[in-house]
Design a protein around this nucleic acid. Sequence first.
DNA 1: ATGAAAGCGCTAACAT
DNA 2: ATGTTAGCGCTTTCAT
Lengths: 361, 361
Amino acid sequence: MEVVGSVTGHDMTNSPAQRSKIEDVAERAGVSVATVSRALRGLPNVAESTRRHVTDVAASMNYRADPAAARLAAGRTKTMMAVVPSISGWYFSTIVAGAGAVCVDAGYDFLVVGVGTLGEWGHLLEPTYHLERRTDGVIVVDIEVTDAQFASLHRHQLSLATIGTRRPDCPSVLIDDVGVGRMAADHLIGLGHRRIGLIGGAEDDLMRFQVPLRRRQGFVERLEAAGHDFDQELAAPGYFTVDGGREAMASLLDLDRPPTACFAMSDEMAFGALMALRERGLRPGRDVSVVGVDDHEFASVVELTTVRQMVAHQGASAARALIGEMEAGPDEQRNMAHPVIEEPFELVVRGTTCPHPTGHG
Amino acid sequence: MEVVGSVTGHDMTNSPAQRSKIEDVAERAGVSVATVSRALRGLPNVAESTRRHVTDVAASMNYRADPAAARLAAGRTKTMMAVVPSISGWYFSTIVAGAGAVCVDAGYDFLVVGVGTLGEWGHLLEPTYHLERRTDGVIVVDIEVTDAQFASLHRHQLSLATIGTRRPDCPSVLIDDVGVGRMAADHLIGLGHRRIGLIGGAEDDLMRFQVPLRRRQGFVERLEAAGHDFDQELAAPGYFTVDGGREAMASLLDLDRPPTACFAMSDEMAFGALMALRERGLRPGRDVSVVGVDDHEFASVVELTTVRQMVAHQGASAARALIGEMEAGPDEQRNMAHPVIEEPFELVVRGTTCPHPTGHG
DNA sequence: ATGAAAGCGCTAACAT
DNA sequence: ATGTTAGCGCTTTCAT
């Protein structure tokens, strides 16, 4: 099928597609619109034979309910929304991919919103803004939802699920971040390191992320349990970016007594740390050990030892849990047990960690 | 504000938020609903004083038009949709981030759909599926839109913009991919390489991507212009993934006469190529040169020489162009000039390319 | 199990 | 410049 030269837009099938409405289906099927509606949505009180017939007719007409009309009439949008600090980062886009896949399967529309700052997130919640009638629920990733905000969501009939943050009143998908910190520390300590740097988020945590705090907690706990007390100057902010990690590592190396190993709370920061090492002629895994978190696709490229987590799976879990909440009636919703879904993690040892510090500092 | 122990869900503000409707605003403002509608949407034929007054009243009531109702009545969704081969890859998620930001600013909702296969993309277009009344337009990234598909979109009143692919009848955002191929080839040839590998997409291109074909074209053209004819065995499929790049490079190194340099059509494949090199004890930029495309955030981490493009900006451009199409009436739309937006690219020389092959093979 | 009819909250003619 | 009103296409009581 080839359009010859019709840049002007003349096309053979200019007729705007005729959309069939529920009424047309009803007529063709010889039943009422109400029955069509019920049959197509799988509601009870429809004779099995009727349902099959209606389904067939609808299919033959390529009928689909107009989402806008359905939303208006039903008051539900069949849409969910993911709120992430940033759309393009690896972690968040992987979460989004996992959740999006579940939505497609479940027939939900999937809206994505990136909120660069805590302020924007606040705005999002204001009735004046976006949430109100656009979505039935939201997945909030790594951003703390205050009680006031939760109440506001509740008032607007919006369901909630969180990732990376925990509330008792909604499904939460988490990994044991304290355990992650412990695991990284244990690995490094076991290798003989005693002076270990820590590359985390920002000091003044704008987004109130809990994740870095918990990872730090587990990390420090094990260090102290091993009898090496944790020197505050060994903690540097990496802002969860490559560049941040690079600068953090650089500053750690500038210390009078630089660390012989380093725990970066994300692989992306770890990549930056590796850069900083190379810039100074230090060999990762020989002169300085580095362990990250995530098992980013590139971790194996640079032979990064890391604590692996299944990020896409977390997004999918959250989406499924949220759908559970949304499909529950508002009444049963508040009496239901909101699952706390603990996702697995594991240490993947590669080349950037090695035994015995060479003690270059 | 602290909830004490209310896991059961009793909250102080249990009253479902009262939503004000356009009628309420009209009453409070002492005008008709039509005037409110017009005033709030910036339509003509409203006295400036009236508009200000209505706007104030609406704001004071936190009024926002119900999107579903507006969509149903107006027949437009104020939503756009991005269709990408995969949501989580760096390139696509960066595109999506760029487009999403524009949507937020313009008051558009932003739907994201990942289509793993060409088949899924076909399904998406079927009237039975998702597009129909959900969106006013779609940005298709790197997937070829056939004439039949374009006609179908047109019939369903959907506007289109493309990225990475070109049609005369809709806005297209592109880089000169032939030029990209030339630039990479020129760089490597200038360095003295004559036997240069090429890591591209799949052989049997399932998604009908044009991009790899064009990059290859420019690459081969320059090679031949320089008198080194391009050996077919030097082309290996990398599938635009890290792993694919790794395997491709491995297979190139297995040749009787392996290349002394390699052009990977994306940084992600280039990263994989670097891995393969290291696995064999070869030093990137010393034993074998590698150049990628994108300037991925990690390119600098591994000192990758690459052809930089501004991916987020491309997403933003496409979104803006699409909004232009959607806001144009259907009539003016077919008479309008559909922009071809050529985005810039440039060579960024880092450490993975160097002069003179050492001729290890 | 099925049908009739009343909205859902807005926009867009059409009046004035 | 502003008001009146008829839908938009569905869901959902309420009858039957």
